[in-house]
Design a protein around this nucleic acid. Structure first.
Lengths: 202, 202
DNA sequence: CAATATCTAGAACAGGAATTCTAGAAAACT
DNA sequence: AGTTTTCTAGAATTCCTGTTCTAGATATTG
């Protein structure tokens, strides 16, 4: 019942993604509106605030990205190989979907939780849970001797996601194509980074 | 002649650095003023605009950082070792001076040049020149077979600065201490990243 | 000491952004 | 058809920020 939506939520988020690509992370709601040709009222009817629009965009990008990582990370190969493959896949994902990747750079998870609308706090806070669970499984398989070491998850996250994301980020921000040769750099440096864990005492 | 400065330019930039640490990169001039207890007029008497304050802060941080890298990079050791040492030194610099490091994240060099006050354009545009010259010297020494390859500088910059900076960045942004173990991760992964260049055709 | 230059002080101004509000259009339901 | 619900439309409002402006304080110069 009721009138059909002229602009779906996803279309609005797409517009926000475009606006961010053009005007940077400080993109204005007016700029989002201009991007899709919608009046501000329609957007406020769907989202509670500008912050919520940006937050929803960020969360959608993270979810899609995690979806891709799950595809890669669910393989049955050796855990070490899977981890390296995930790192390379991250680079490829960013190369193919640069605007999605750009949207992921909107917030840092920490600073985010400081100023979230309440009704999004839980959802935003737990956004990494599933992914971290997968990562922890692979990590303990790869580094059984660090099973109870609290550095394990931060370490593996850094070596796989952090390293790759850090290398790709400048290209994403400046909207320059991610060069192909970066893949082999990521592959080798990720493998080397993981190998550091082999020298640690359990 | 004239009255003494109650607030030096450096003090104002320090205040801006604090404001950014507290309120993020969108910190307001009013927040900068509050940080040092100065009225806006005093700041506008020294700097032409808010953008110029932030730009000057960014440039000061970059210069100080480059100064540190020059100390490390001017050693007489093997070029490959020097490059790896520079990467590790970057991490250590960020650990010891996290607010300086945070100020460096204010802009990307690309997006910067889009909206610089004219009288700062030259200075801002050439800020990396000296450092790139050093890097190019080390790069050609380490990879003589890539002397005329245009990928050389981007590649080495990525493997040394980009990789390290990418790994450290999340800690800097979230103002979490950079863990000690990151140094060995950076050391090994930087070395591995550089080794990729050995496989390239000149 | 007068004159001048430099800086501090903070009120006043202008513009823009987020948000709210009211009216109206379009579909679904009875 | 009439009623209700959901959404569009965009003008109006409020708040806040960057910037300007004028007055006054403090040092230097002759």
């Amino acid at each position: 019942m009721g009138r059909h939506q002229l602009y779906t939520s996803d279309q609005i988020l797409d517009a926000a993604m475009d606006a961010v690509a053009i005007h940077g992370r400080a993109a204005t709601l007016a700029q989002v509106c201009a991007q899709i040709g919608a009046p501000s009222g329609s957007i406020y009817h769907r989202f509670g605030s500008r912050d919520e629009v940006m937050m929803r965009l960020w969360m959608r990008s993270i979810h899609r990205f995690h979806g891709r990582l799950f595809e890669v990370g669910s393989g049955q190969a050796d855990a070490g190989d899977v981890l390296v493959t995930m790192a390379v896949a991250t680079a490829q994902y960013c190369r193919h979907l640069p605007r999605e990747a750009l949207s992921m750079t909107l917030f840092s998870h920490e600073r985010l939780m400081a100023s979230v609308p309440d009704h999004l706090r839980d959802e935003a806070g737990g956004i990494n849970d599933e992914f971290f669970a997968l990562l922890l499984r692979l990590a303990t398989e790869r580094f059984p001797h660090l099973k109870d070491d609290e550095r394990l998850l931060p370490f593996v996250f850094t070596a796989v996601v952090g390293l790759c994301y850090g290398l790709v980020r400048p290209y994403i921000i400046d909207q320059i194509p991610v060069p192909e040769w970066l893949d082999s750099v990521i592959h080798d440096s990720c493998r080397a980074a993981l190998a550091v864990g082999d020298t640690w005492q359990g």
